[in-house]
């Protein structure tokens, strides 16, 4: 029984880690794609050519 509990624990930790990694990446790519200057100063200008080249709406 204890082994099963441990497996569940590890599995939960893995799921949590996967979720944290994916949400973090999602946040980072959103800053780049939408040019969120309030999160990263200069994000809009720095990735301006990239944003337009991959079709994300801009000014």
């Amino acid at each position: 029984m204890k082994a099963i509990e441990e497996i569940k624990e590890v599995s939960f930790q893995n799921h949590l880690l996967v979720t944290v990694v994916l949400v973090g990446l999602l946040f980072a790519v959103s800053v780049v794609l939408f040019g969120v200057d309030s999160v990263m100063a200069g994000a809009h200008d720095t990735f301006h050519d990239f944003r337009h080249s991959i079709g994300m709406p801009c000014h």
């Binding site: 790519v29 990735f47 301006h48 050519d49 990239f50 337009h52």
Partner: peptide
């Protein structure tokens, strides 16, 4: 399609980072 405004060297960096992040997600 879009008239690029930055230098080629800068764009190598930003397109690499942007594409890389999109690919990671």
């Amino acid at each position: 399609v879009f008239v690029l405004e930055m230098s080629f060297g800068e764009n190598l960096l930003t397109f690499g980072i942007g594409g890389g992040l999109f690919g990671l997600v």
